[in-house]
């Protein structure tokens, strides 16, 4: 979700096999460098594999270029990496959120499993509760929210959406990303 000079990204913590909950401590947001964050929904094994793949790729980028990767460049890296597996894809729908350190502008985008980028200036949703998230985000989001208001908005949007999805929930992680600060908050949420 985009705010004024800030972005937020949030995920639930459930890991399950269909209706059976296996773990309630499985974060789906990963940090690459100071400001760039990647959210991954989909097949759990690919969430782990893809997050590790990008950790490797971004670390190599940082060593080669002696700088942090920008969210835009990272988004294109995600896209080309996913499309590389066009005929045997990773079963994930990633979301990228970050702030470009050069111009200080927020950036978010989403992808399908083969890397088609979906740019947005408001919000991106993904996962089993995406239908519900579209509803809550459409209803709660407004332009130019400050960091605290953005936190409240994204948290309410996520919690209320996952409460209406049997396959999501069990607490949440929320990241508020500002130009030189990232705040991570843990939400308890409904434990049932």
């Amino acid at each position: 979700m985009v705010g004024k000079d800030c972005v937020a990204i949030a995920c639930d913590l459930r890991l399950g096999l269909q209706a059976l909950t296996v773990s309630n401590n499985f974060p789906k947001i990963f940090s690459y460098g100071s400001q760039v964050h990647l959210g991954l929904t989909g097949l759990a094994t690919d969430v782990s594999s893809v997050s590790e793949l990008f950790r490797y790729k971004v670390n190599m980028y940082r060593l080669r270029e002696e700088r942090d990767i920008s969210p835009q460049t990272f988004a294109n890296l995600v896209s080309s990496s996913l499309y590389e597996r066009r005929f045997g894809p990773w079963f994930v729908s990633p979301v990228v959120a970050g702030i470009n350190q050069t111009d200080g502008k927020p950036f978010i985008c989403g992808f399908d499993s083969i890397g088609c980028i979906d740019f947005a200036k408001d919000f991106i949703v993904s996962g089993t509760a995406s239908d519900q998230l579209f509803g809550t985000c459409e209803g709660l989001w407004e332009p130019n929210l400050g960091p605290e208001d953005l936190f409240e908005t994204i948290s309410q949007a996520l919690l209320n959406a996952v409460d209406r999805d049997a396959l999501s929930g069990w607490g949440a992680h929320v990241y508020i990303i500002e130009k030189d600060k990232v705040t991570k908050r843990l939400l308890k949420g409904r434990q049932d």
Partner: peptide, 11 residues
């Protein structure tokens, strides 16, 4: 301190 080091900073 923040932007220092070979692996941080921007281009």
């Amino acid at each position: 301190v923040k932007s220092g080091g070979k692996t941080g900073g921007i281009l």
